[in-house]
Structure formats: C-alpha cells, structure tokens
Design a protein around this nucleic acid. Structure first.
Length: 316
DNA sequence: TGCAGTGTTGCTTC
DNA sequence: CGAAGCAACACTGC
C-alpha cells in the first residue's frame, strides 16, 4: 500500500545506503505486453526509452534520495533524476542478489533474480522482480511489483518540478509550512466534492491514499461523503490535526504491510496492526463510548470503511 | 473452482 | 470542464 508513509519509509532506507554508490548495470524483465499504451511512453516499459535511460544511468553516482507525493526521486550525477512510482504493489529491495539463467524450456522466463542469502528478502511478496540495478559495492537495488503497474522513468533534475510527473501535485501534508489555512484553501478547491475523494486527490494534497484517508476520517468523526462546504470548522481543524497525526504514525510504524508492501530490507511495516477502520467491515467501532459498526461502501470507485454512528455526514 | 477484491493513476467518455 | 468509469496486471482469499 504505498502511500506517503510507505514511500517515506523506503526513501529513508535508500538515503542511508545509496548515496555515493555508482550504477554498474540495469536489467529489465522483457516479458511484458502492451508497449504501445500511451502511459508507458516515458517509462522503462517502453524498450526504446529504457535503452536510452540505461545509457544515461550506468556509470553515474547517486547524490541523494528524496520523496515528492508518492514518488521516489533518486538524484544522480550528470543532471538526471530516476523517478519511481510504486503504484499498487511496487516496492524496492536492497541487498545481495544473484542472477539465475535457466535454459529456455516450456516458454518459461529465462532469467530470475534471487537473494544470495536466507532472510527477509525471501518473503514470498518479494519474488516479483522486474527491474534490477547493480551497484558499485556489489549490492543490488531491485524493483519488485506483482501487478506491474509501477513506473520508473528518467527526468532532468533541474526541470523536475515542471515535469509532467510532478507539475500537478499539491502541497506536502507534513510540511511545517502547510498550515491549517492552507489546508482549508486546498479542500475548498472542491467545496462540494466528497471529502474522502478530495483527500486522495494528489493535485489537492500530496501522498494520501485509500488506507490513510479512511483512518484520518474515522479519527476526525467525519463521514467520507461529507462536503467541505458543510463540515463545521472545528471538524476541519480536527481533520487537519488527524491528517498529520495518522500519517506520522504510519511513518513511525515503518509503513503498512497489510498487503505487499515491504521496506528495502524486505521486512513488513506494522501500521496494519493499528487500523481503526480499514478492512474492518462488520466489526464494532473501537471509539470510546461509540456503539457503531464499521461498514464498507464504494465511493468514487474506491472501497471506503467508516463507522455508521460517530462519523457524521455533513451535507448531501 | 471461480470470481470478487486489491494500495494507484490516467485515459476515455459523457 | 468535471465527474465517472474503466483499463493497466496478477495475485490472494473466500
């Protein structure tokens, strides 16, 4: 579930190990389909783009690793930045790998990458490796993604903010400069929209996805279909505070591994043990003094979880 | 066994 | 223009 806390966990891990290392080689799984789809034009899924990017990256050194919204930015020498978006099931792994080349039997995959040693990298969730960067210290950065939605691309570092990947991204919710006033202004870009959908809109606020939006609305006692225009001021203040609190908790627990997410060592985060609503359909609401039940409803095509009692619907 | 459900996003359609 | 629907892909669990 790579949302802001999971991407932050990955970026913090990479920032500890990558700076100073050079790229020696890049391998990509070539058993892919749909190369003609437009959205793949500037990603490694387009073979021509991959070959061009590969030449720019090999021999270059990592300067640092940053996060913007749910994107991982690896700044390298030579003026380029490797941008990685994990989408639904992507994660990055760092460690010692070996390449297994099997004989071309039964049309099966010819090359596999497996961890050199026993340990968390052998977790079944870590076996869907599609891109591998070899590094100058003999270790590897592997991109693991069972559904193959993830995006890896290469952009000019100096034009990064204006690039098509980042130009429409809203403010960072954990930025100290992102005040309550800013928060309200952002929400009121869509005064009549559904608050859950607005929180997840990356052009309004960066980094919030399905799990954390459900959790912050639960702790703010707001029904996800409420509209900004009708939510009382004190509830908006609470939502602003809970947004920061819930995202920070996610980071402090090392992210959420209810599903495939793993940190760069292949280990689970722990936020999944602290959900109050997400994936808790039918359970009693855990809020003190509340006798409600957690229900599930599809909102804007996303499965939403909320308490049918204490989360009040404002508007509609 | 088969099919509903899954963290994200961007294109297409209305 | 905005909202909604769907497609991209593959696995898990009921």
């Amino acid at each position: 579930m790579p949302e802001l806390p999971e991407v932050t966990t990955t970026v913090n891990g990479l920032q500890k190990v990558l700076p100073g290392l050079c790229f020696v080689d890049i391998w990509q799984d070539i058993s892919k389909k749909n190369q003609t789809i437009k959205q793949f034009k500037y990603t490694f899924k387009d073979e021509k783009f991959f070959n061009k990017a590969r030449k720019e990256i090999i021999g270059k050194k990592v300067i640092n690793v940053q996060r913007r919204a749910k994107n991982i930015l690896i700044n390298i020498s030579g003026g380029y930045t490797i941008l990685i978006h994990l989408k639904m099931t992507g994660h990055l792994l760092f460690g010692k790998y070996k390449k297994i080349v099997s004989s071309k039997q039964k049309g099966k995959r010819e090359i596999r990458w497996v961890p050199e040693n026993d340990g968390p990298l052998n977790d079944p969730s870590n076996r869907f490796i599609h891109v591998v960067f070899s590094l100058s210290n003999g270790k590897y950065l592997a991109f693991c993604d069972s559904r193959k939605f993830g995006k890896i691309t290469l952009i000019d570092t100096k034009n990064i903010a204006e690039s098509i990947h980042l130009s429409k991204i809203g403010p960072e919710p954990l930025d100290k400069k992102f005040t309550l006033k800013n928060f309200k202004e952002q929400l009121f870009i869509k005064p009549n929209g559904k608050i859950k959908t607005i929180l997840m809109d990356q052009s309004i606020i960066a980094g919030i996805g399905n799990i954390y939006s459900d959790e912050m609305l639960w702790s703010s006692s707001i029904n996800p279909e409420s509209t900004p225009l009708k939510i009382p001021k004190d509830r908006l203040v609470k939502l602003y505070q809970e947004m920061k609190k819930v995202l920070s908790m996610g980071i402090n627990f090392g992210g959420d591994s209810m599903s495939d997410y793993r940190n760069i060592d292949g280990l689970r985060g722990n936020f999944q043990h602290h959900h109050n609503v997400y994936q808790k359909k039918g359970e009693a609401c855990g809020k003190k003094g509340c006798f409600g039940v957690i229900i599930r409803k599809v909102i804007n095509g996303r499965s939403s979880h909320f308490c049918n009692s204490h989360q009040k619907l404002y508007g509609r």
